[in-house]
C-alpha cells in the first residue's frame, strides 16, 4: 500500500486562521473525534469527509480543500455544527471555504454549486429579493458550458416551473422591492471597509 506524504512545506500555516476570519469560528480546536462525519447526511457523496476537511484545514492543505467536491455537496444542515463536542462551527467553515473558492475562481467538477451561489446573490442584490425565473436563467447559463446545454438543463425544471406558475406561486415580474439602491449602498460600504483592512 502506498502512503501519501503530506509535505508541510506545501501547506499554508495560516489557513485555519484565514477560515476563522471568514466566519468559521473555532476551526482550530478540532480534536478529530469524527462526530461530524458520523451524522453528516451527505457524506456518502463527498470526496473528503467533514472530519478530514477539518484536519486538512488545520494542516493548511489549502489547495486540496478548496478544490474538493465536499464543500459543494454540503447541504448546510448544521447537524455537524450542533453536535461537535468542541464547538467547531463546521457548517460555517464549509461556508467560508465556499466563499474563498468563489472569490479565487476555483471551480469544482460540478460547476452548479458556484453557479447557484453567484446567481442567487446577483439576483438578490439587483432586485432586493429573489425572483425565481431570473435566478433559473442565470443559473443555467452559468452551470452549463453551452447554450444548448443550458436550455436542456432548464427544460428539466420546466414541469416544476409550470406547476408553480399554474398554482399561482411563481410571479412573472420581480417583486416589489422599492429601493434596490439601498443594497448597493450596503455592498459598497462593505467593499470600502474590506479594502481598508
Amino acid at each position: 500500500m502506498e502512503i501519501e506524504t503530506i509535505k508541510l512545506k506545501d501547506c499554508d500555516p495560516n489557513f485555519a486562521k484565514e477560515i476563522i476570519g471568514a466566519g468559521g469560528k473555532k476551526a482550530n480546536v478540532c480534536f478529530q473525534c469524527g462526530t461530524c462525519t458520523a451524522g453528516c447526511p451527505t457524506v456518502y457523496a463527498m470526496d473528503f469527509t467533514p472530519r478530514q476537511i477539518m484536519r486538512m484545514v488545520n494542516l493548511g492543505m489549502r489547495e486540496q480543500v478548496l478544490q474538493s467536491g465536499t464543500i459543494w455537496v454540503c447541504a448546510s444542515c448544521f447537524t455537524c455544527q450542533s453536535r461537535c463536542p468542541r464547538g467547531v462551527e463546521i457548517t460555517s467553515v464549509m461556508g467560508a471555504l465556499k466563499n474563498i473558492a468563489i472569490r479565487e475562481g476555483i471551480t469544482p467538477q460540478n460547476k452548479k454549486g458556484p453557479a447557484f451561489y453567484n446567481s442567487f446573490l446577483e439576483v438578490a442584490m439587483d432586485h432586493g429579493r429573489i425572483y425565481e425565473p431570473e435566478l433559473m436563467l442565470r443559473f443555467a447559463g452559468r452551470s452549463e458550458k453551452s447554450i444548448p446545454g443550458a436550455l436542456k438543463s432548464l427544460s428539466k425544471d420546466i414541469p416544476l416551473g409550470m406547476g408553480l406558475v399554474k398554482k399561482g406561486k411563481m410571479a412573472f415580474l420581480p417583486h416589489s422591492f422599492r429601493r434596490p439602491e439601498q443594497l448597493k449602498i450596503i455592498y459598497d460600504n462593505i467593499r470600502k471597509m474590506e479594502g481598508e483592512k
Binding site: G23, F120, A124, F177, R179, I186, Y187
Partner: peptide, 17 residues
C-alpha cells in the same frame, strides 16, 4: 420594504454582508 435575508448564500460570499 424588506429585503432578502441573503440566505446561506450571503454567508458563503461574505461574512459581513
Amino acid at each position: 420594504d424588506w429585503n432578502c435575508c441573503g440566505s446561506s448564500v450571503a454567508s458563503s460570499k461574505d461574512y459581513l454582508l
